[in-house]
């Protein structure tokens, strides 16, 4: 399957903006999430950026089920990051 076909099929998208206390925290969250590879890149993609004190996560997926599962696992990681900020910073 060519790359162009993939992009065309990634019709299901979601963007989440998560506000943090500071822009440094948003930047750290972004750096923590970014390294992990996506297991099935042809089905699911995510882009992390930080804008001011917001973490912006843009998800793309081939169907709503894969999107839901992928997003929920990322949210679990974000919860750990926020808890670390709250308890250990």
């Amino acid at each position: 399957m060519s790359k162009r076909d993939n992009n065309m099929q990634m019709e299901h998208t979601l963007t989440l903006n998560i506000p943090f206390a500071t822009s440094k925290q948003a930047d750290i969250a972004c750096q923590v999430l970014r390294p992990d590879p996506i297991l099935r890149p042809q089905d699911f993609q995510v882009k992390y950026t930080s804008k001011g004190n917001e973490l912006v996560m843009e998800f793309q997926s081939i169907d709503d089920r894969v999107l839901r599962v992928g997003v929920s696992s990322v949210i679990d990681s974000v919860k750990t990051i926020i808890e670390t900020f709250d308890e250990l910073e």
């Binding site: 750290i28 750096q31 923590v32 990681s77 750990t80 990051i81 670390t84 900020f85 250990l88 910073e89």
Partner: peptide
């Protein structure tokens, strides 16, 4: 393993 490394990376960056 992944659950723990998320906490490890965050600690490393904040400290």
């Amino acid at each position: 393993l992944h659950s723990v490394v998320i906490a490890a990376r965050t600690c490393s960056l904040i400290w």
